[in-house]
Amino acid sequence: MIKLLFFAQLQEEIGHHSFEIEDANYTVQQLKEYVLKEYPMVNLQHAMVAINEQFSSDKDLVHDGDIVAFLPPVSGG
């Protein structure tokens, strides 16, 4: 199982903060495609992805039990 988290405008576009998917062994790129298929209106083009709170790249593998966060460009401060 993989837990997906969404923040800021992504959270509003998707309509909730998080959801879980059963299968594992996706790459980050494949996960993005999965999300886009489920939620075609979501804009992931500029999103960064963190696996277990570490920034990741599209080629990184996501494993069972991982928490994957989709982060729009940040605007703190």
């Binding site: 923040f7 800021a8 405008q9 509003e12 500029h46 963190a50 966060a69 982060l71 729009p72 460009p73 940040v74 605007s75 703190g76 401060g77």
Partner: peptide, 17 residues
């Protein structure tokens, strides 16, 4: 740092980034 702000105006709102 993963922090985001949303500006709320009289006639709308927008997440900044």
């Amino acid at each position: 740092v993963p922090i985001w702000k949303k500006e709320v105006w009289e006639d709308g709102e927008m997440w900044i980034g």
